[in-house]
Nucleic acid binder design. Sequence first.
DNA 1: TAGGCCATCTGGTCCT
DNA 2: AGGACCAGATGGCCTA
Length: 351
Amino acid sequence: MTRSVRGEHTSVESDEQQELCSPASRETERAGAGAGVEEEEEEEDQLHHLEEDEEEDDEEDEEEEEDGENKPKRRGPKKKKMTKARLQRFKVRRMKANARERNRMHGLNDALESLRKVVPCYSKTQKLSKIETLRLAKNYIWALSEVLRSGKAPDLMSFVQALCKGLSQPTTNLVAGCLQLNPRTFLPEQTPDMPTHLPPAGAAAYPGHFSYQSPGLTAGLPSPPYGTMDPSHIFHQVKGQPYGSLEPFFDGVLVSDGPAFDPPLSPPLSINGNFSSFKHEPVAASDYDKSFSFSVHYGGGGAGGHPSVYGSGGANPRCGELQVEQLMGFDGHSHHERLMNAQLNAIFHDS
DNA sequence: TAGGCCATCTGGTCCT
DNA sequence: AGGACCAGATGGCCTA
């Protein structure tokens, strides 16, 4: 599910946690994931104080143990008494572990955020959830590798279908939004007896259709709301905005009205430079005739796109071709990626 | 209000 | 022993 970005999360600890954790650490928690330097310093101070206390208590501890030697030894595993010192040590250990765990999770979230930026349909305001980011990334990798494997450029619908496999409705809508497509047109019809993620019998209508099924889904994993296309969840486009050059190809595909859509920043998945997403520059009617090909690219790349050399998409003139150089070409990609990009181009231009 | 998502804490396990 | 990793529990926030 896509979620709009909200304020930093706050947390309230359980009674036990409150008992164990210092006020300073609780303050840090209130600051949430974006805890600033001040809070971290406070926590460090707190840890320092606790460690000092610990040293003092160690002496106490030794005294207690000496006292214990005068008593008769008990059998069985020696159960250490939770002395004040041990309690303090425990607290310090836990606080350190908590801090490490927080950092670890922040690192994980940072990595996830990086992933969000390189999968299609990145938006700062309409963030994909973690699970949806991973699903979309998996689909994206699969779709791109399928392009490599087959050596053919897939048609738009197949590509989008592959991207949206197993995704929730909101995410599907988001992807559709990036493409300015109506999700109903590229997702299989839902039938009562068939899992919504499985393509219907007629799904092969698109030439070059990706015969993709999510491993997780084929394994029978629960995925209740994903991939269904309730008309009420259709992607909505900003009222009054032009469709760009998609319009002549996708009559009835594009959605005409709806609440405002918050456009993704980068890399939005768009089709061909002619209708670079969310620029909504009017395209002359004559331009529509120049190209029947589609390409997917990141808006950040800025390139205007050009007609594909791979023809018009065969039997289905509405389903154009994806241009590989624009699948991958957006600012910020590494040298390695550019190299790969060039290799992809070589493959496609040789074929 | 229920459900989804998230951050955090926590204890267990494994590894160095 | 200490750190990394993991999964369960908990509670807050947000949206339909």
